[in-house]
Computed example of a mutant assay.
Amino acid sequence: MSKYLVFMDLDGTLLSSDHKHISVRNKAAIETLQQHDVRFYIATGRMYELAKITQNLLNPEVGLITSNGAVFDGVSGREVTLMGSKTVELAYQITQVNKLPMMLFTPEKAYFTEKIPHFIAQNAGNFDEAFGYKEIANLKELQQVAGEITNGVVLSRGDMDELEQAKAKLADSKLLRLSSSGPDNIEMIPLKTDKGTAIQQIQWEQHVDAAHTFVFGDGMNDLGMMKQAKYSVAMGNGVKTVKEQANYVTDTNEKDGIATFLENFFKDEF
């Protein structure tokens, strides 16, 4: 049985600023603590198959919370919460007003409704050159997959007013939970679902309480999980609100903030 649980966001937290690499020091700290019954989880807005790319940089013992909590590794297998066809179709209608790019995800597949500039998609943390995306050309095509969607992200093309208008309409629907991994996107998640709800379920399944739980994050979509751990840790590069909500602040992702905190905490324990 695990003594501690550690949940790590990816972009801006575990990964370097290129969104692809884990430092040698962070990897070593994780592997060392895994030998002492510390269980690690990636906790990300990325879809399941895309998050596995990062998991493969570590090891299979690292669990996954993906799609902002809609898809995660439970003790009996992968657990999935869907957005619902009605919600997905409404999001499509709202984003089509100003042709805002929208990316929609199942655990294994990804779809887009408008052509997405490479740098925007990459910065949203939902893009990998080796991963295929299918275009949704119209509502009829969307309806064929709407019942499989777990989460989505709406991206700005530079006009923040358009993004705010879409966000207001989505919020008014009361059909989904909204968050953000950055100022230029809207994360869409099923109601009553976020990284924090996934952590609660894992804590219950693993019989590990908040007093033995760590979370590391930097963005607004990490706020939910900050409430589920005694050791809620904001990255030095994190947004102001996350730093205010967290119980601790560590170094930046580029300065191995996760390893810095864990090495200091466990230096006399193991």
Results as ranks from 00 to 15, higher is better:
residue 73 D to A: 03
residue 103 M to R: 11
residue 90 L to E: 07
residue 105 F to V: 08
residue 89 E to W: 07
residue 122 Q to S: 15
residue 134 K to W: 09
residue 102 M to I: 15
residue 102 M to F: 09
residue 133 Y to V: 01
residue 69 G to P: 01
residue 93 Q to E: 14
residue 83 M to P: 00
residue 112 F to W: 10
residue 135 E to S: 12
residue 80 V to D: 05
residue 123 N to V: 02
residue 119 F to C: 13
residue 82 L to Y: 15
residue 73 D to F: 07
residue 64 L to S: 03
residue 127 F to M: 09
residue 123 N to M: 11
residue 132 G to T: 12
residue 118 H to F: 13
residue 75 V to R: 14
residue 110 A to G: 09
residue 84 G to C: 11
residue 108 E to D: 12
residue 140 K to Y: 11
residue 107 P to W: 09
residue 103 M to A: 13
residue 89 E to D: 13
residue 119 F to L: 13
residue 109 K to S: 08
residue 98 N to A: 15
residue 95 T to L: 10
residue 108 E to G: 00
residue 130 A to T: 15
residue 122 Q to G: 14
residue 119 F to A: 09
residue 101 P to C: 07
residue 66 T to S: 15
residue 111 Y to S: 06
residue 105 F to P: 02
residue 126 N to W: 07
residue 133 Y to G: 08
residue 78 R to E: 06
residue 131 F to W: 04
residue 114 E to A: 05
residue 139 L to F: 08
residue 122 Q to V: 04
residue 71 V to H: 06
residue 80 V to I: 09
residue 74 G to D: 01
residue 68 N to T: 00
residue 73 D to M: 06
residue 117 P to S: 07
residue 118 H to Q: 13
residue 64 L to K: 03
residue 130 A to W: 08
residue 64 L to D: 02
residue 100 L to K: 05
residue 81 T to L: 10
residue 77 G to I: 09
residue 90 L to P: 02
residue 138 N to M: 12
residue 109 K to H: 09
residue 93 Q to H: 12
residue 105 F to W: 05
residue 94 I to T: 07
residue 132 G to N: 14
residue 83 M to Q: 10
residue 126 N to Q: 14
residue 72 F to I: 03
residue 111 Y to M: 00
residue 103 M to L: 15
residue 122 Q to F: 11
residue 66 T to P: 00
residue 137 A to D: 11
residue 126 N to E: 04
residue 132 G to W: 13
residue 85 S to E: 13
residue 65 I to H: 06
residue 115 K to L: 08
residue 66 T to M: 02
residue 99 K to R: 14
residue 106 T to R: 01
residue 138 N to P: 15
residue 82 L to H: 11
residue 84 G to R: 11
residue 75 V to S: 08
residue 97 V to Y: 05
residue 82 L to M: 10
residue 126 N to H: 07
residue 67 S to F: 05
residue 94 I to G: 01
residue 102 M to W: 00
residue 110 A to E: 04
residue 88 V to W: 00
residue 96 Q to P: 06
residue 131 F to H: 10
residue 94 I to F: 03
residue 86 K to G: 01
residue 87 T to N: 05
residue 114 E to M: 01
residue 78 R to H: 04
residue 102 M to P: 04
residue 104 L to N: 03
residue 74 G to C: 08
residue 104 L to F: 04
residue 78 R to S: 09
residue 124 A to V: 03
residue 126 N to G: 10
residue 105 F to A: 04
residue 117 P to I: 01
residue 116 I to L: 10
residue 86 K to Y: 13
residue 115 K to N: 13
residue 71 V to T: 10
